[in-house]
């Protein structure tokens, strides 16, 4: 049950998590997956294929921009935060703080 609940929670927060790890520096999809795993200590087990529909969605919303770049001698699609993406990261952090503290108060 816990694993299912965690997957549901992740689905709802994947966009915010991606924006947060992208705030460090521009990156391609694989690197973003690595950052997510690293910063969560391996606790956030996102199917890596789900990163790309989410990145395309963030691009549709104007939160990220992307371009093909040469990286380690290979051409890759690199994503970077836009100004509205930076604002969304701050909003998403604030929202999570409020939500988690409210849930914390209820659960004890």
């Amino acid at each position: 049950m816990l694993a299912g609940m965690r997957a549901d929670l992740l689905r709802g927060h994947l966009d915010g998590l991606l924006l947060a790890v992208l705030a460090d520096a521009p990156a391609h999809g694989y690197e973003l997956g690595q950052r997510l795993a690293q910063r969560s200590g391996g606790e956030l087990d996102v199917p890596e294929g789900s990163l790309y529909p989410a990145l395309h969605r963030l691009e549709r919303g104007g939160f990220v921009a992307s371009a093909w770049r040469m990286d380690d001698g290979r051409r890759r699609r690199v994503y970077r935060l836009t100004r509205s993406g930076r604002r969304a990261v701050s909003a998403s952090r604030e929202e999570w703080r409020t939500f988690s503290s409210a849930v914390g108060r209820v659960l004890g």
Partner: peptide
């Protein structure tokens, strides 16, 4: 997806890379 899987396979092997990527129908 091809780039991602190639990167992942270099670190943990092809089978593990595709497993971690998720079912192709869902993706």
């Amino acid at each position: 997806c091809r780039d991602h899987l190639a990167d992942a396979a270099a670190g943990r092997g092809g089978q593990a890379a595709v497993r971690a990527f998720g079912p192709p129908a869902d993706v």
